[in-house]
């Protein structure tokens, strides 16, 4: 009886379960983290005249990342003296969970989204993604280490200063689409992606989200040469492995948002096989291209200093985002026909 009921429930919610466990959910994020780590190591190695992972897994060392992760799980977890043991071990897991939630609002096809968010999924995305720095701040604070505290402070500075321009730039997109729903935003880009009409917002958002995901040249909170490993200095073993995931999960969710907002999301010029599959193909293709560009920065740019980053975000990005928002609002109010020309609402 019970089993039948469970099976019936699973049958009823099969699509949701697949979404949560497999495709845009847990499995996808984990596979992305492994693949991105592998690609980054391999790519950086080549840019440094090295080879990188080679033997493990026969082909280009693809198993090396998994081997490293298994090695990390086998290592001793050292908990520093005088820390709250429960929080110290809980927070890494919590940080990964909260930052992964944001992927739920990204549409991978018009009917393939974990939670539609009653038409405000863009706002929900920001709400979910903004939880991460608080937990990172606590992570750094609870480690009772000077490097960790400096790193945690840097996280909060950089995140807040980058969040504001990113949000303002995204508002420009929301005005153009006339909706906070990410599905509507994607549908509004059916003729032309917002990259072109929102070019200023595009640039602002790109720089700001690089800062939010702590990628080069804004990897200030974990600046190895200055503060060892920032907020994750005290973590070891599997906890360290989990905090390493934090490098890639926000990168994944924010890049997906970026693709959705400016590059037309799941829409593509060509439809093949089924509608849903081609949508998956297009969003993953755009996503991979953006990821490759971001990872490439690491072998091109040195790190910016904290004050330089804050100057950039507060003095240049925020006013530029405001300007973009005002221009978009004026056009939307007085010349709504212009939007019609490019296919937006």
């Amino acid at each position: 009886m019970l089993i039948d009921e469970i099976l019936g429930w699973i049958k009823l919610n099969l699509k949701d379960l697949i979404q949560i466990v497999l495709f845009p959910g847990i499995a996808f994020i984990l596979i992305f983290a492994v693949a991105a780590t592998w690609f980054e190591r391999k790519y950086l190695a080549h840019s440094m005249l090295r080879i990188g992972p080679l033997h493990t897994g026969r082909v280009a060392g693809w198993l090396q990342i998994i081997a490293d992760f298994i090695k990390l799980t086998g290592k001793e977890v050292i908990t520093p003296r005088n820390v709250n043991v429960f929080l110290f071990n809980l927070l890494p897991v919590l940080s990964v969970c909260t930052s992964a939630i944001a992927v739920a609002f990204i549409p991978f096809s018009s009917d393939w989204i974990i939670y539609e968010g009653n038409g405000i999924s863009l706002l929900l995305f920001f709400a979910a993604a903004s939880l991460t720095p608080y937990i990172t701040l606590m992570l750094g604070w609870i480690s009772n280490n000077k490097y960790s505290i400096i790193g945690a402070m840097r996280v909060s500075y950089v995140y807040i200063s980058a969040e504001i321009p990113a949000f303002l730039a995204a508002m420009g997109v929301a005005i153009m689409a006339g909706s906070f729903s990410l599905i509507d935003i994607v549908e509004a880009q059916s003729r032309i992606p917002f990259l072109i009409p929102q070019i200023l917002g595009f640039i602002v958002f790109f720089i700001a989200f690089l800062a939010e995901v702590e990628r080069v040249p804004f990897d200030i909170p974990v600046a190895e040469q200055e503060i060892v490993a920032g907020w994750r200095t005290e973590y070891s073993g599997i906890n360290f492995g989990v905090t390493m995931m934090m490098d890639y999960i926000p990168l994944c969710t924010w890049t997906l948002l970026f693709v959705t907002l400016y590059l037309g999301g799941y829409q593509g010029p060509l439809i093949f096989a089924s509608q849903t599959l081609s949508n998956f193909f297009w969003i993953l293709l755009k996503f991979s291209l953006v990821i490759v560009v971001i990872l490439l920065f690491r072998s091109v740019f040195p790190r910016l200093r904290m004050d330089q980053t804050l100057r950039l975000t507060w003095k240049y990005l925020t006013p530029a985002a405001f300007l973009n928002l005002i221009i978009t609002a004026i056009i939307a109010y007085y010349y709504p026909d212009l939007f019609g020309l490019i296919g937006a609402s």
Partner: peptide, 17 residues
């Protein structure tokens, strides 16, 4: 110094090479 500026290990390995 390339290494010290952070995030730019490529130059370090080029010079070593």
């Amino acid at each position: 110094i390339a290494e010290a500026c952070g995030g730019y290990p490529a130059i370090f390995l080029w010079t070593v090479a």
